[in-house]
Structures are given as C-alpha cells and as structure tokens.
Computed example of a mutant assay.
Amino acid sequence: MPTAQHATIIIERPFKAPPARVFAAWSSQTAKRSWFAEGEGWKVLNFALDFREGGTETSRFAAPDGVEHANETVFHDIVANQRIIFSYSMLMNGVRHSVSLATIDVRPDGVGTRLIFTEQGAFFDGGDGPKMREMGWTELLNALAKHLGE
C-alpha cells in the first residue's frame, strides 16, 4: 500500500544583499532561472515563471543520469520584498512524488537579509524524502547567494 511521509523543513539563511534584491531574485524569470534552474550538469527542458498571486511556475530538467524532474508551482500570497507563499509538486519521469506548501520570509537583518524558508510537505514512496529535500533547498539557497555575488 502506498504511503506518504509528512515533514516540516525550516532553513534560515542570511544574505548580505538587502531584502529587495533577495526578493527580486525570486520574482524575475531571468534571475530565478539562473540560480534555480541552471545547475551544473543539468539540462533545462522548460522554465516559465508567472510571478503573481494565482500565477504559476513550471520547470522540467534532465539530470546528468537522464532522469527527468519537473516542478509545478502555484503562487498563493505575495507581499513585495517580504513574503512568498506557494504550493508545488515534484515529479520524476512523470510520476508525482511530493506535494508541498512553502513560505519564503524575507526579513531585514542589519544591512542584509535573513531568509526563512519553511516547507510543509507530503513525500510519497519512491521520492526524495525530507532529508534530500532539505539538502536540495540548502544547495539552491547557496546558488542564490552566489547569484547575489556573495
């Protein structure tokens, strides 16, 4: 019988850049594609971002081993330079393996920013699971820091 594992992931990450610049890296299709979609060894098959409440983000990638991964995202709440709330599902070779609700809190921290990422996920059999997801988001936030010149 298929099962689902539920988990909450929280990652706090400081950035030297001010909140408006960190937020812009999430809201611009060009910026987000550069740090989110274009990982080393991965081939971007599709990336589209309609950043507005009710808007969507879709992406498909081929891993170096040929496995295809996809994200399907819907934005539910956006407060400029402060907060993004979205739900997303992930698929591997066309099979959905997780569904999550995620919140990005962008907070001033001195001259920089403290980003708080919170994900509440349901992870299905055969998927990545919470530990791998946390590692993945940590790598993505490191890529965001590099994009910001940190």
Rank of each mutant, 00 (worst) to 15 (best):
F86P: 01
S34L: 10
D65G: 04
T8Q: 15
G55D: 08
Q5K: 05
T30C: 00
N46W: 01
M90L: 10
I11K: 00
R133K: 14
S87G: 13
S87H: 12
R133P: 04
R21N: 10
A48S: 12
A31L: 10
Q120I: 12
T56N: 09
S28L: 08
D105N: 13
G110N: 06
K131G: 13
L91P: 00
D50R: 09
V106Y: 04
R33T: 09
E38D: 09
S100W: 09
A7W: 07
H76W: 13
Q82K: 15
G41I: 07
A80E: 15
R60C: 08
A24S: 13
H6F: 12
A80G: 03
W26N: 02
V99C: 04
V44H: 02
E68M: 07
V106K: 05
A37Y: 04
P14I: 06
A62W: 06
E38Q: 11
F51C: 02
M90Q: 11
G39Q: 10
P130C: 06
V111D: 13
A25I: 04
W42M: 07
I10F: 03
M132G: 15
F86K: 08
R60Y: 05
H6Y: 13
V79W: 02
G110V: 03
A70S: 14
A4G: 09
A31F: 07
F47A: 02
T58Q: 14
P19L: 09
F47S: 03
V44S: 01
V106L: 03
A70H: 08
S98N: 15
